[in-house]
Design a protein around this nucleic acid. Structure first.
Lengths: 291, 291
DNA sequence: TGTTAACTGTGTACGGTCTACACATTGTTT
DNA sequence: AAACAATGTGTAGACCGTACACAGTTAACA
């Protein structure tokens, strides 16, 4: 099989689109990409993404490790295809709707449902905007819910981006609810009101540990509210955002970020050097006292 | 060194709090936790988290791989400490402020700056709420910006949770801007208006590829707007959210998610079995025709 | 003041990861 | 029939994290 990047597409992506040169010459293939991905997904469902190795997948299929490389050029390809298979297609419901809040909420719920079925999806790092059919279908579905709103195209995409991030975040945190075993009393001892003036009262009020799920519900509602007022302002022909941040102060995005990044970097370097010197001093003192 | 979990804290977390039984008996220690973490951070800064191995860190320090295990009980501990060191303390600015929007915006910018300095932070999976001093300090700083608002404690924590997720998301996506090399023409060919009725026009409008950074700015502003209207409603003594979603429909969170999850799971199993059977049929047909 | 016991850094070894490459075999094309 | 491409396999190499035994160093206890 060609396996070289098809046109301009990275190999894995090309496979996901089903755009891949199929060979004619050699022996009939005994395996199939579909079957391999299915097997890998089942392993991940059962024992997590960490249990998915070229060897474990091959063994599950009754073939040798290296045989997989005739179908997939690297493990990363397999992971990409697993992601695409795992995310699947969004529930058909989508379509245009006048009730965009309901549409987006259900879109959001649906993503959570998928993360519930395939938690390992959250272990796959996102390394670009969606490029593959199913992922784009989810985006499309979300945009559908916004199709009848006053938002311009760009804003719709941005809104879906924000929502995607939020649902992924919720999925990640909720998944590890159980793993978070530090007893709140212990934590309360460490979190003194002097060191954490604003956090300590929050913990005292019990607002930290309980109600994870409701916390995310709050976030979702805020985003939806934010979209709603924004739409209202747009419809009213007004500029755009409630309480536009003051442009005079050092507030503009990129400069601010770059500037503080530089400051952080410098401060860290200074600290690190100081620590380094102290360590060296200690070592020398020890050596001297030994001689 | 004891290295056993100190009290109820996982070892790594105990180390981060500086709560760790220090040994008295044996030879003086030549290395230090600080030094090890510093070295690891520098490697990650230079070549990414993937370049951080027990061996690479030890070599950088001029010691053997196994020596590190006298300071850290597993690589995961080291990663946790790297995270804590990398995130550092939030800029002092924080504190109470009447201008919560500005406070949160700067908090958000500051996190992005940190991700800019230590992109590898985004490669470390989040597997619990923050437990370590620096991470809690960031939370505390964020809560400080909300201290003079009408939000109850729980809502403040929830708001910070949402904001944290969003900044992490932005950091992750922006970092890989460069890696996303699929030419938009190629993508445009694949994304047909029939298959992607809502996405296709968005791409045609150029709303997909350009302006990543502004897209996230939009998201941030929506969250802030959402918080603002929520505060306003609270101050006005009204219930809570603009256009509360209809509770009659199948809309409540957990049931809905669980239900669709079950549906997804079933549908997938069915599909998978069908594919499996077809594959077997093909194989058998081949064998028969061969005999 | 020995003696004991704890702790140090080191070296070896094991099981695991991904994948490059040579190999005989199978099937199509010429 | 010959040429050639594609298949699945086996070997081997370069890494990874870490369990464990070892000799040497230091403090605490008899």
């Amino acid at each position: 099989m060609d396996m070289g990047s098809d046109g301009d597409l990275p190999r894995g992506v090309a496979l996901a689109w089903g755009v891949a040169a199929n060979p004619q010459r050699g022996p009939k293939r005994e395996l199939s990409l579909e079957g391999i991905v299915d097997a890998a997904v089942q392993i991940a469902d059962a024992d997590g993404l960490g249990a998915v190795s070229m060897s474990s997948v091959a063994t599950a299929l009754g073939y040798t490790t290296m045989s997989l490389y005739r179908y997939v050029s690297a493990k990363d390809d397999l992971i990409l295809l697993m992601q695409e298979a795992g995310i699947g297609l969004p529930p058909i419901a989508a379509g245009k709707t006048e009730r965009w809040r309901e549409g987006l909420t259900q879109w959001y719920r649906a993503t959570l449902a998928v993360y519930d079925v395939h938690p390992w999806l959250l272990d796959i790092p996102v390394d670009s905007e969606p490029n593959t059919p199913n992922n784009l279908a989810w985006l499309d579905a979300g945009l559908g819910a916004l199709a009848q709103t006053a938002l311009p195209q760009t804003a719709r995409v941005s809104a879906m981006l924000a929502l995607s991030g939020q649902s992924r975040w919720e999925g990640q945190i909720l998944r590890n609810q159980a793993a978070n075993v530090i007893p709140s009393e212990t934590l309360a001892e460490l979190i003194t009101p002097e060191q954490f003036p604003f956090l300590a009262p929050a913990i005292a009020a019990g607002s930290f540990t309980d109600g994870e799920s409701e916390a995310f519900e709050f976030g979702l509602l805020r985003i939806l509210d934010g979209l709603e007022v924004h739409m209202a302002e747009l419809s009213a022909g007004r500029p755009g955002t409630v309480a536009q941040p003051d442009p005079d102060r050092e507030f503009a995005k990129d400069e601010n970020v770059k500037k503080t990044a530089a400051r952080v970097k410098e401060a860290e370097a200074k600290l690190r050097d100081a620590r380094q010197k102290q360590r060296e001093a200690v070592t020398k003192a020890r050596e001297r006292s030994r001689a």
